[in-house]
Computed example of a mutant assay.
Amino acid sequence: MEFSYNRLWKMLIDREIKKMDLQKMSDVSGASITKMGCCENVTTDVLLRICEALDCQVEDIMERVDKK
């Protein structure tokens, strides 16, 4: 099992927010955004900051999926 951030990417598209804008809005490093793009682990602090910036819950931006 791994975490997928596809929900986050879809939300960004729906809200017309670029990854760079998310980085600035949430004060999250570009490295963390890149890790999320590769379905790698990030800290809960990163997830919290993103949720606060987007006014959403953690289940709105990620889900647990089977490894491909």
Rank of each mutant, 00 (worst) to 15 (best):
Q57P: 05
Y5H: 00
R7Y: 06
D55I: 02
Q57V: 05
K24F: 14
T34Q: 06
A53G: 07
R7W: 00
K67F: 15
R49C: 09
I17C: 07
L48T: 00
C38R: 09
E59C: 13
E52S: 15
L8F: 11
I61E: 01
K35T: 00
E2Q: 14
S29F: 09
R64P: 01
D66S: 12
M62L: 07
D66A: 12
Y5Q: 06
K24R: 05
I13D: 13
L22C: 03
E16T: 15
C39D: 13
E40V: 00
L47A: 07
E2H: 10
R49L: 07
L12W: 04
N6E: 13
E63I: 13
F3L: 13
L47I: 12
I17L: 13
K67W: 14
S29P: 14
D14P: 08
R7G: 02
T34Y: 14
E52T: 12
M25W: 03
M11N: 09
V46F: 05
E52K: 03
L48P: 02
C51S: 00
E59I: 11
Q23L: 10
C56G: 13
D60H: 15
M62R: 11
V65S: 03
S29G: 14
R64G: 09
D21Q: 14
D14T: 05
R49A: 08
I13F: 11
N6T: 12
T43S: 13
E52W: 11
N6I: 14
K67C: 15
R15Q: 14
E59W: 15
K19P: 02
L12G: 12
E16H: 14
G30N: 06
I17T: 10
K10V: 13
V46N: 00
V46Y: 01
L48N: 02
G37C: 12
T44Y: 10
R49D: 03
V28N: 01
N6V: 14
M1K: 01
L54A: 11
E63L: 11
W9H: 04
C38P: 00
C56Y: 12
E2P: 00
C56I: 08
K18W: 10
S26T: 05
M1L: 00
K35W: 01
K10P: 01
T44R: 06
K19D: 06
V58K: 00
S4W: 11
D14F: 02
M36D: 08
K10T: 09
D55H: 04
A53S: 11
T43D: 03
N41M: 05
C56R: 12
K10Y: 02
C56E: 13
M1D: 04
D60S: 09
S29H: 08
E2L: 07
Y5G: 02
M20H: 08
